[in-house]
């Protein structure tokens, strides 16, 4: 074990039941042009876990997801997915390794219909949901399948952004602020969808400002500040930390 392993996975609770981490990030640094945005991020996601990155605006949460995915190419450190390094894998091969990405801005394409948006990402592995199953979970999308993607409401667009990744059969989803700017009833729906993902054994690395939402669905938490992970704890340790977190996150 290296020093960083002990830092990010404290001995108090064994995660993953002895399994190796599905996603292992070590000393990840990233740059936007000249600006050094990540200063050595360490984190783990174990198979089937929902892990949440917490932190104030601008501390590097979104950047962490984009650097893991390889959308930011100016990066250094180590990212292993299912025991294989993906640092040198070209962006269009990452999804085929089993890693899916839902961006903060949702990335719904205006020139594609809802159904075209839904079927755009290639299926990369078996075990993804069928179109029929997806329409069953999201009847709204079925009704609006012929409309341009961006004619949907914000909540429906977020559903579509998640739904299209469900089809692909990826085993870990990087999900960036899915509840941002949405009404509570929609947030509730997204929470249900994430639980469905969990029952399918799909892991999620979630960036979330909505701490209460995250506390209901996540198994493990990391707190980021200044481009680094500064704290790590499991859901059972959450009650004891709530007050300190509220102060740290400024909510």
């Amino acid at each position: 074990m290296t020093a960083t392993d002990t830092l990010t996975a404290p001995a108090t609770v064994a995660r993953g039941g002895g399994a190796a981490p599905q996603l292992k990030v070590r000393k990840l640094e990233a740059w936007y042009g000249e600006s050094h945005a990540l200063h050595g991020v360490d984190l783990d996601v174990y198979p089937g876990e929902t892990v949440t990155l917490l932190g104030r605006n601008g501390v590097g949460k979104t950047t962490t997801l984009r650097a893991i995915m390889g959308i930011i190419r100016k990066r250094k450190g180590e990212v292993e997915f299912e025991q294989k390094s993906i640092m040198r894998v070209p962006l269009h091969r990452i999804a085929h390794a089993g890693l899916g990405f839902v961006p903060e801005e949702r990335g719904i394409f205006a020139s594609l219909t809802v159904e075209e948006n839904l079927t755009l990402p290639p299926v990369v592995a078996k075990g993804g949901m069928s179109i029929e199953k997806i329409y069953e979970i999201f009847p709204n999308l079925f009704e609006r399948r012929g409309s341009p993607g961006t004619k949907l409401s914000g909540g429906e667009q977020q559903m579509l952004a998640i739904a299209r990744i469900l089809r692909t059969g990826v085993r870990l989803i990087l999900l960036d602020e899915p509840t941002e700017g949405l009404a509570p009833v929609i947030v509730e729906r997204i929470g249900e969808v994430l639980k469905v993902l969990k029952t399918h054994g799909v892991s999620v690395l979630l960036v979330e400002q909505n701490f209460r939402f995250a506390s209901r669905i996540a198994d493990h938490f990391y707190v980021m500040d200044h481009g680094q992970v500064i704290d790590s704890f499991t859901v059972s340790e959450l009650p004891a930390r709530t007050e300190a977190l509220n102060t740290a996150l400024g909510v």
């Binding site: 269009h92 990452i94 085929h96 394409f109 020139s111 594609l112 075209e116 755009l120 990402p121």
Partner: peptide, 25 residues
Amino acid sequence: TKIGAYLRAATENSTLVQAFGVNVP
């Protein structure tokens, strides 16, 4: 067509289409 959908989507946001696993280059 499907390839047309890739083209339209990549015209809007090629990075995301590539992150979905499409060989954009």
